[in-house]
């Protein structure tokens, strides 16, 4: 019989010991050239609504993955840097604990999961996300002919009034795990590729299981170039970036 204290500990922490998988994504900033293919790949895969020019002007675009462009220096010595930004899947996610209805929670594989059906749209999570990567459905999304034909059947279309965000292509993770299970093995590198990683022409985005010490992501995360965004916030993101700066993409 475990004591209460022990059972609380087991239930709350150390996912990584009790689960086979802990998903992670590594983005190599040196390889990113800001082409934006990942943004489109993500939008197509996840049925992200297109809101139109006017709404984008009001900062109501829904891109789960966005390319942030920063300009360093004064003209003419200007350098442009790109930062693909999506949900960081924080281990201690600020957005999760503030949701009054458990619409977002941490799943055992280290993902920050958004349950659309539970969401009532208080937008508290959006306010507490330091990365500002949570998006709100301000209106009902419309997919007029023939766009509706390209909707992904694996992903639900969100109602107006709910929050949504990057799921690290949950549907692909599911499929990858199922296939691996059918074949009687663990998921390996390359089994699962989120839409952005698949689309990226320079291969800047890598996805994998960080619990597997042979995986690419494990090695990259321990390469010395790896950083987390807003590390001082103590959110412990599952998405990590490889420092850039040596390679002048445009300049």
């Amino acid at each position: 019989m475990r004591t209460l204290k022990e059972s609380i500990k087991v239930k709350s922490f150390n996912y990584k010991k009790h689960n086979d998988y802990s998903w992670s994504m590594i983005i190599d900033l040196d390889r990113c050239n800001g082409c934006g293919a990942c943004v489109i790949g993500c939008q197509a895969e996840n049925n992200v609504a297109t809101v139109g020019e006017e709404e984008v002007g009001k900062k109501r675009n829904m891109h789960w993955l966005r390319i942030e462009r920063y300009i360093e220096g004064e003209y003419p010595h200007v350098k442009v840097r790109f930062l693909p930004m999506m949900c960081q899947h924080c281990a201690q996610a600020p957005c999760e604990s503030v949701c009054p209805v458990y619409a977002t929670y941490h799943n055992p594989e280290g993902l920050n999961v958004q349950v659309y059906n539970r969401c009532i749209g208080t937008r508290f999570c959006g306010n507490n996300c330091p990365y500002s990567v949570r998006y709100f459905n301000w209106f009902d999304s419309s997919f007029p002919e023939p766009v509706n034909n390209q909707l992904n059947p694996d992903v639900s279309v969100r109602e107006r009034g709910v929050m949504e965000k990057c799921s690290l292509c949950m549907q692909r993770i599911r499929r990858g795990k199922d296939t691996a299970k059918d074949e009687g093995r663990e998921v390996q590198d390359g089994d699962i590729q989120p839409a952005c990683a698949q689309t990226c022409p320079t291969g800047a985005i890598t996805f994998g299981n960080i619990n597997d010490h042979e995986s690419k992501v494990y090695k990259m995360a321990h390469s010395g170039r790896a950083i987390s965004l807003f590390e001082e916030k103590g959110t412990h993101p599952a998405v990590k970036y490889l420092k850039g700066g040596t390679n002048d993409v445009i300049g």
Partner: peptide, 12 residues
């Protein structure tokens, strides 16, 4: 939809 209000990302 709540878009009728002026709020937007990230002023939720």
């Amino acid at each position: 939809g709540l878009g009728m209000a002026g709020i937007h990302e990230p002023v939720y």
